[in-house]
Design a protein around this nucleic acid. Structure first.
Length: 403
RNA sequence: GCAGAGGUGGUCGAGCGGACAAUGGCACUGGGCUGUAAACCCAGCGCCCUUCGGGGCUACGCAGGUUCGAAUCCUGCCCUCUGCACCA
């Protein structure tokens, strides 16, 4: 087991905030002395088993704790999931069946174990104890917290101020999550900075139950591809770790330079000083590296994390051919239609390159469509019998055969 | 429960009897410039049809009504918020 100081350094790396450092030291010291591992709890939403890069920031930190020999619990919030989206944006979710939950858990495992050690990871579900609670239990739990304290949470405060609705059930979310920490006797709880409030409630409630409060560690939230919102599937600004190598590579290549550095910070193991050096270099009068090259490295590294170096190399090369040398991609959807001559607009719609015929027309008019590498401007163009390679926008291609 | 404010397109937010498929911002999509970067410029942005002139359909919380004509006026309902009341 590593020394307390070594552990501290490793744990702090990349963290946004830790509350509190001194309590953490106490816990680590005790752990080293008694040779007992600490319990580290991290909760995950059961309805989104599609992990993306944003989740990996946190999962990497879990990995650090595993490396140090602590006990990491991957907690699936299958019960809290019923309460609704903690950001308050979306409606209450329909309850998941046991089957679905188990299925989601399997999907989670498959993805999480690309990073975490399956041998060292405990997977648990909070319905195990939350579903068993009686009304009385809930009332007792609720009695341990106050509305005023609850309204300190930023999104509640904002919604209250801007006259948005706040369902009472939503107030139960932080309480339930906090109670998880009581049941699991968590020494640590990890989460994104957006979870800070909920994690803090965990401390308060543990104290109420006469326990030593957990130390909370927040990790920075990863911005989505737009560089503004947090990465999330519903905002469609994410990079899923299960996506194919070419897609991941391409998505990373489309981010802005500023975002690229932040991704370096949060998604690679490079030391902060090295990243700072790159940043200065790019900003200097005569950069030794083109920012695009740095981005290519980043993209390849990230693909490699989830698909291995061979696939990453291949993705990089395919990208170079398709976008930098403007070659036609080897693989694209193929369609076969009858009834020649067909209007180009029809073909675009039927091959799913455009959503409607009107949209197809608009795309043609705006110069987005090319047939066999030459741009088409005639909205009424008809295609006779033959084979064509059709491109619509930068990304969509189709090989179409017309009889 | 009483009183008041409000519910408009992906979002914010104008409009308050015809000229409204609905100003504007943002987001988004295409094009140009590039490094599939940013910034910037141009265009599009409900659905369908079009000989590209235009034509049709569906939309402003829901349901009715008044009117030649309603997002706009009236009635009822639903929802949100604020103040008061209630606070076991």
């Amino acid at each position: 087991m590593k020394s307390v100081q070594e552990q501290l350094n490793y744990i702090c790396k990349g963290a946004a905030e830790i509350i509190s450092i001194s309590e953490m030291q106490t816990k680590l010291q005790r752990s080293v002395q008694t040779r007992q591992p600490l319990t580290v709890k991290v909760g995950f939403d059961p309805t989104a088993p599609d992990l993306h890069l944003g989740h990996t920031v946190l999962i990497r930190k879990m990995q650090h704790f595993q490396d140090l020999g602590h006990r990491v619990i991957f907690l699936i919030g299958d019960f809290t999931g019923l309460i609704g989206d903690p950001t308050g944006r979306s409606k209450t979710r329909p309850p998941l069946s046991t089957e679905q939950i188990l299925q989601n858990a399997e999907t989670y495992k498959k993805q999480v174990f690309k990073i975490l050690d399956p041998e060292k990871t405990v997977i648990d579900f909070n319905s195990r104890w939350l579903a068993a609670m009686t009304s009385q239990d809930w009332i007792k739990l609720c009695a341990k917290y106050t509305v005023a304290a609850m309204l300190k949470r930023d999104d509640f405060a904002t919604r209250y101020r801007t006259e948005q609705s706040i369902g009472i059930h939503e107030l139960l979310y932080p309480l339930a999550q906090a109670y998880d920490s009581v049941v699991l006797q968590a020494d640590f709880e990890l989460g994104g900075t957006d979870q800070k409030f909920n994690l803090l409630v965990g401390r308060d409630i543990q104290r109420e139950f006469g326990m030593e409060p957990q130390v909370i560690l927040t990790m920075p939230i990863l911005e989505g591809l737009d560089g503004v919102e947090k990465m999330s599937k519903s905002l469609n600004n994410y990079v899923g770790i299960q996506e194919d190598p070419k897609t991941i590579y391409g998505k990373i290549m489309s981010i802005s330079d500023g975002l690229m550095f932040r991704y370096y910070e949060r998604l690679t193991n490079l030391a902060p000083s090295e990243i700072e050096k790159m940043r200065r270099d790019v900003a200097s009068e005569k950069p030794s590296l083109h920012p695009m090259e740095l981005k290519q490295r980043l993209a390849e590294q990230i693909v490699s994390d989830f698909h291995g170096p061979v696939a990453a190399r291949a993705a990089a090369e395919a990208f170079g051919r398709q976008f930098q040398q403007r070659e036609v991609p080897e693989v694209m959807p193929e369609f076969s239609f009858t009834g020649a001559p067909l209007s180009l607009a029809d073909v675009l719609t039927r091959s799913a390159l455009a959503e409607s015929k009107s949209q197809a027309r608009r795309l043609i008019q705006s110069g987005a469509v090319s047939v066999d590498q030459s741009k088409v401007s005639d909205v009424a163009l008809k295609l006779s019998v033959g084979q064509y390679v059709i491109r619509c926008g930068r990304l969509k291609w189709a090989r179409v055969k017309i009889d």
